[in-house]
Design a protein around this nucleic acid. Structure first.
Lengths: 342, 342
DNA sequence: AACCACATCGCAATCGTTTGCGGTGACGAT
DNA sequence: ATCGTCACCGCAAACGATTGCGATGTGGTT
């Protein structure tokens, strides 16, 4: 009655047939006369009949809905991932329910719970900064529940993951600075417990080592917040100390890089002539700020597409559970702008 | 069986009682002995029983889910609105399903359809740029289906809307430029068919008129795309023409303002000494670019909160349909940064 | 006339939960 | 012994759709 939406029963009653006949007629099952099929279809069309997805979910134990857990939508990278996810999901008849955790573990837990209550068929997850325990994932994986992790992937064996090559991206960024003649390169690192932070740090360190540059631990700063203010403060206090100072900065995210740029400009340094900077992610603002910020582009849309494709195949292969893990690594791209070109 | 999730039947069977008893025991209905209640609850706890939300939706014709239709998540403003929506929805036991239309009318239609198939209880909508016909909304409104429009609201009588005071915001921005001594102010307007574009234009025009400045229609440019490149091209070709040129620009969105800044800087103009610029929305990058961009801040989070609160009350008042419209207007805030201070 | 084959369709169970109504048994009162 | 009053609980329908199986009727064949 709600919305005046017609049900299969209404059609059955109006045509004096059973609901089973209506159901079969609508789906062109054999054993229904063409005459009946036509009558049913015509009336269904006329009443603008649409099957009740909730009833279908209950009956089939399949909701054609996937859940997406991300830290924040305001994060440019994640918003592009979402677009990729929606594209593939919709194209395959799947719906998407989205929850942002706001980087909180508790929200991550409760979101997953309510999604499961709603019988989602699978999960796409990029976990929160607070998440250090993966038992809530393991429990589901043990039950063979389809999950694909993207970008931020847990260290659990045999999971399906989509990531970018953070090591290589960081390496490229750092090497680029070195190639430009910068010799004392600092690093603004990400939250410690994220694998992506570690990988980026490793790439940074490897590039230094490969080019015979010494590593100065005092020039590696963790930025748990990832805000502009945080890196601004860090850079200011660093450069106000005096002594030998970095002439290059590789930041593990663009926001931190932008904060550093603001700090340096306020202190009277010239970018890129005094100091070169490279960020990570390629937020929209990178090309807008002054000087435009060199950065490592992450293929967010593509990541969303691939992760969803993998998830859908997990869902359809759920029974024959060979359950072998798989990790797709996407290439990043170094975008050279003025902030790092001497 | 799926997920090993226990159902009410499992509990009933294990305890040799009927499902009705289990149901009532779990909800502390009268007419069930304390002993039985305890047994049921204990077992439910032990089996980690959680009611199947799909079955509940079917039974109660209520899904405790609201749908959100927005143009794009990458849009900073909308991503903040989403956060506000989620906050209120979760706090009231509602789930959120999100669809972005990517500014396409067809996607808007299909998203709404599938959401209705999934028995959502209400809709939060900010429609696409392509949407010029509102019949798909009217049909639902006539059926008394709960809808709240936000930011981009259609011209339909008796709807519930949450908007910002675009007129006042634009007026403030323009007046600010005038107060700073800029006299020839151009306008980068938004897509023509959006009310917000009109209102902002009106605010701009009113400010000019109130201060006895002449209106030059050649200095009003519509930016249907809203991209940086678009406004960059517009501004470049304008300033390359020569003749009398604007010394101030009010852009109806920050991206357009940023594009204009890039163009002007490339042409050798100084901001703000030669030309003052004010944008609209307060994207994150506004404080990062050089010079920092003055803009009109829109309370996105608050808008999301209020829209959701209104929607939830629409949902609970659905029966007593006094169906009177309501439009909440939120104040904007002029953020003065360097781009507009002579 | 009896039988079979085939086309066409309905019954009823099912998914998990809620809920109106009726049933059962114990107990005390008459 | 009969009845009424509780407390406690189960039956079955309902939400909308699907589906295995059985039922019905028609026609043709022997």
């Amino acid at each position: 009655m709600k919305l005046g939406q017609a049900t299969i029963k209404d059609i059955a009653k109006a045509l004096n047939v059973s609901t089973s006949t209506v159901s079969r007629a609508l789906k062109d099952y054999p054993g229904i006369s063409n005459e009946t099929k036509k009558k049913v279809k015509d009336l269904a069309e006329h009443l603008n009949y649409r099957p009740n997805a909730v009833a279908l979910s209950l009956r089939k134990s399949k909701s054609n809905t996937i859940g997406v857990i991300i830290p924040e939508v305001v994060h440019f990278f994640f918003s592009t991932v979402i677009s990729g996810i929606e594209e593939v999901a919709f194209a395959n008849g799947y719906n998407v329910v989205l929850c942002q955790t706001n980087e909180r573990f508790s929200r991550e837990l409760s979101s997953i719970e309510t999604m499961l209550d709603n019988q989602i068929d699978g999960l796409l997850i990029s976990y929160s900064k607070e998440t250090e325990d993966f038992n809530h994932f393991k429990k589901l994986l043990d039950l063979n529940f389809p999950i694909v992790f993207f970008d931020r992937v847990p260290e659990i064996p045999n999971t399906v993951n989509v990531i970018v090559n953070d090591f290589q991206g960081a390496y490229d960024a750092t090497k680029h600075l070195i190639d430009q003649g910068y010799k004392y390169i600092a690093h603004l690192a990400g939250p410690k417990n994220l694998t992506i932070s570690k990988k980026r740090m490793e790439g940074y360190l490897a590039a230094l080592t490969d080019h015979n540059l010494s590593i100065n631990n005092d020039w590696i700063f963790h930025c748990p917040e990832g805000t502009k203010e945080e890196s601004l403060d860090i850079i200011k206090s660093l450069y106000l100390k005096g002594g030998i100072l970095p002439d290059g900065i590789f930041a593990s995210n663009d926001i931190a890089a932008a904060g550093a740029m603001v700090a340096l400009k306020e202190l009277g340094y010239q970018i890129p002539s005094d100091i070169g900077i490279v960020g990570f992610s390629n937020w929209q603002f990178c090309s807008m700020i002054d000087p435009p910020l060199s950065t490592i582009a992450q293929p967010g849309f593509k990541m969303g597409e691939i992760a969803t494709t993998l998830l859908l195949s997990c869902i359809s292969n759920k029974n024959n559970s060979d359950a072998k893990g798989e990790t797709v690594v996407l290439d990043t791209e170094l975008l050279i702008r003025q902030s790092s070109v001497k």
